[in-house]
Amino acid sequence: MPPARRSTRSTARPGLSWDVVEPAPVVLVRGTEGLLADRAMARLVGLARERATAESTTLEVTRLEASMYEQGRLAVLASPSLFAEPRYVEILGLESLNDACATDVTAYLADPAPDVVLVLRHAGGQKGKKLLEAIAATGAPEVACEPVPEREKAAFVQAEFARGRRRIAPAAVTALVDAVGSDLRELAAACSQLIEDTTGQVGQDDVDRYYGGRVEATGFKVADAAIAGDAGQALALARHAMASGTDPVPLVAAVALKLRTMAKVAASRGREQGNATAGLAPWQIDRARKELQGWTPEGLAAAVSAVAAADAEIKGEGRSPGYAIERALLRVAAARAGR
């Protein structure tokens, strides 16, 4: 396995994406986003197996839990094998490692064994910080597995379809993110289903056909209707969502999120965007600009106040969450119409 023979310093590329990392003597997979970490580790073991097969050898794969690690175990696994077969070792859960694991891995970093790929998984937190610093000091490749921000969910969807050699319309991307974008695993699964079950370019009709019920049951459709000034549609969707078991809190949160985005974009008018639109993706800015048509600064301020009041009532200051959200939606829709 040629890459396993190179120095960890010569392969140093911190912050790698899961889809470009290559097997190396030591690889750190770090971050709280489990989907990206799972993909990184599946890629690493897959590539290691391919290379072993190409060399007509068998890859020995071992997985260990850092919290249950036994002293000396890594040294045994990395010791030269009788037939010089390549070995692949994963140590999972470094965020819960015991002292024996910390000691052995730290010592191993000084002299990684040839023909061994050691993959270390840390899912976040402060425990194991010294070991993480020691790994970074060797220059070992690190795969970044942090949560994907909302502003980057659209790019994630586009990348999923590009890997599947399929195209998806911009409107369909937005609809899909609105429907299932809160959880990256669900979003990836939705992309996979659309790629497998449809043909040609995926459009908004395809997304609505597969996930329309979910879209209507979320606050995004409710928010769209209220901000467009369509009070009747907003109330109908909100009532349907609550009747289907949706908690009022995320409904209000969705309206509040849209209004905050609109306020940021409105604040950037007439000057460079600068900090006003920091954290927003270009598509979010373009969408907010369209949604701001028909709104005045006074109306926007009134809508924000109405939603803030509803949020407080729903979270304990009022007796009827359903009434609170319906009143807020009426006020938001009226604020756009200037009534």
Results as ranks from 00 to 15, higher is better:
G46D: 05
G46I: 13
G46W: 02
G46N: 03
L47V: 08
L47D: 01
A48K: 05
R49D: 01
E50W: 04
E50Q: 14
E50V: 10
A52H: 00
T53V: 01
T53E: 08
T53A: 07
A54M: 10
E55I: 10
E55P: 02
E55Q: 04
S56D: 05
S56Q: 11
S56W: 07
T58M: 00
L59N: 09
L59C: 02
E60W: 05
V61D: 04
V61H: 10
V61L: 02
V61Y: 00
V61N: 00
V61I: 15
T62E: 06
T62V: 11
L64K: 02
L64E: 06
L64A: 01
E65C: 09
A66S: 07
S67H: 05
S67M: 04
S67G: 05
M68E: 06
Y69P: 11
Y69I: 11
Y69T: 02
E70Y: 06
E70S: 14
E70R: 13
Q71T: 12
Q71C: 11
G72W: 07
R73T: 14
R73W: 04
L74A: 01
L74S: 01
A75L: 08
A75S: 01
V76I: 12
L77E: 05
A78P: 09
A78G: 08
A78Y: 05
S79P: 04
S79Q: 06
P80M: 07
P80E: 01
P80G: 08
S81P: 13
S81H: 15
L82R: 13
L82A: 10
F83Q: 14
F83L: 13
F83V: 08
A84C: 15
A84S: 15
P86S: 07
R87W: 14
R87Q: 14
R87C: 13
R87Y: 07
Y88L: 15
V89I: 10
E90W: 09
E90Q: 13
I91C: 03
I91N: 01
I91W: 10
I91E: 03
L92M: 14
L92I: 15
L92N: 13
L94D: 15
L94F: 07
S96L: 03
S96M: 05
S96E: 11
L97A: 03
L97S: 15
L97N: 05
L97R: 10
L97C: 13
D99F: 11
D99I: 12
D99P: 08
A100N: 02
A100W: 08
A102D: 12
A102F: 06
T103S: 06
T103G: 02
V105S: 01
T106I: 04
T106F: 00
T106D: 08
